[in-house]
Amino acid sequence: MSSSSIPRTTDEAKELLRSLLDRLQDAETRLTITEQRLDSFFNWREETDDRIGDLKRENDELRQRLTALEARVNVVEGGKSTKDGKIRQIVAKAENLRKKDQGAVVLTARDIVGATGVSRRYAYDLIDDLPEKHHWVITRTEARDRQFGNVEIDANKQTKAIVVDCEALHSDPEAVNKFTTTREGEDQ
């Protein structure tokens, strides 16, 4: 008997009813399985949302701890990890290399790496940036045009370098306070 035909006998009607009950039973089973899967999915989703919230809170806590630790390291290092701290170290290196009759000191990337502990690449970045930001740090080319006693300033040298004009540095009160004055607990 086809499903589109109308049963003509009681047996055909019983057979159609059994077939419909079997199909209904299969649909109920599939619906139950789908409900269980949906429940599992929503439970997983809720647990995942809770875990994401926990991870966000943990991340915030770790960031706060990192910030506090960085602040403590900065205090211990006397600010040497900041850019101003690096400049202070460069100025200290220039002061240490300066001879009595020199108005300026040439510092190469190697000198800057040695004084600050930065990478060579960062030392070159400082060589490029500092003359633009501080009037008492100049390029070799600029220094060649000035008189600095017996300082050898060869603008044609291939080695990148800066020239710290110590006289200009010491004539700038703000720079003296910021870059030459030792802070409490700081070694220069």
Rank of each mutant, 00 (worst) to 15 (best):
D50H: 11
E77Y: 01
T48P: 02
R51I: 11
V73L: 01
E47Y: 05
A123D: 09
K86R: 13
V118P: 03
V151S: 00
K56N: 11
K14I: 14
W136T: 02
S119G: 12
K56E: 12
D84C: 05
S3Q: 02
R37W: 08
H170C: 15
D101L: 11
T10A: 10
N59S: 15
V113C: 14
E70R: 14
R57G: 13
S19I: 10
S19V: 14
A104Q: 05
R8L: 03
S5W: 15
T116R: 11
V91Q: 01
H134M: 08
E152T: 00
K14G: 10
G117C: 10
S3K: 03
F42S: 01
E95N: 12
T32Y: 13
I138Q: 03
S81W: 03
R45F: 01
R146N: 06
D39Y: 06
F42I: 03
E15G: 11
E152R: 07
G114A: 01
R18N: 09
N177V: 11
V105T: 03
Q25M: 09
G79R: 02
V105G: 00
D50I: 10
L21F: 12
G85P: 00
T34M: 15
D187H: 12
A68P: 07
T48D: 08
V73C: 06
G149C: 07
D111M: 05
K157I: 10
T181Y: 14
R140S: 15
P131Q: 10
R18G: 03
I52G: 07
L126W: 02
S2M: 13
V76F: 11
W44Y: 04
L38D: 07
T34E: 15
D145P: 04
S119A: 09
F41D: 08
Q64C: 04
V105W: 01
V118T: 08
K86V: 13
H134N: 02
V176A: 05
A109S: 15
S81H: 03
G117R: 10
L55T: 00
N59T: 15
Q89G: 04
D101R: 10
L169Q: 00
R98A: 09
E132F: 07
D84L: 01
F42H: 02
L130M: 12
A71K: 11
G117T: 07
Q158M: 00
V75Y: 13
L62D: 10
D49L: 02
L130F: 05
R183N: 06
S4H: 13
T29R: 10
I87C: 06
L16T: 07
R183S: 05
T67N: 15
N43P: 06
R110S: 07
P131W: 01
Q102A: 10
I153C: 00
S5A: 15
D165P: 05
L31F: 09
Q36K: 10
Y122R: 12
G78W: 11
Q102S: 12
A27C: 04
E35I: 13
G85K: 05
D165T: 04
S19A: 15
D187V: 14
E77A: 01
N43E: 12
D145R: 05
